[in-house]
Amino acid sequence: MDTIEYSSRDKELANKIKAISDEAKPEDCYTCVKCTNGCPANKIFEGFAPHKIQVAAHMGFAEELIESGILWYCMNCLTCQTRCPMKTSPVQTISSLTNIAVDRGIAPPKAMTEMIRAVRENGAIVQPREAQTTDFDFLTRDDLDLPERGIKDPEKFKEALKIVGADQVLAIKKPEENK
């Protein structure tokens, strides 16, 4: 059995979470497990348990959670926050921790980075493309007379995104393994 290495405790973690969300409140969790009982990610991803994440975050032992990448399995359904009798928000703790990881230069899943790249390029998480019809036609927004989309001043938009951290995420080097 592993022993807990107290020197690894991050005493500042609660404050780091609070800097992002004041609804997370891991310190108020009394592990009634209502969150985990309603959690769809818990049913399908082994080891994903919102109440345990709350406790780990409160104690300052989130390093393992951050390193493991398990936090990205949260489906963001918000059931945990909605059902918490103590008005804490495990989902906000999880989202704060993934933000803290990214701030430290740990690469998020590829799909997350790609969405940021796409927003930077054309304002949306996906590129405009053709969609298939029941008659096997492939149509675009233009074919359908839908209003044009896209950023009016892309350069200014990119400058704005840099201020709010987009470029920092895009500069993170991906680890060799595919995670």
């Binding site: 999880i94 989202s95 933000n99 980075t113 969405m115 304002g123 995104l161 709010v164």
Partner: peptide, 23 residues
Amino acid sequence: DIEDQSCCGTPIKSTKHSMWAFL
């Protein structure tokens, strides 16, 4: 239509909170 509209930010929230808030 709102002119010049872009992403609402939601898919970015767990990665970059400040970028979500901006969008």
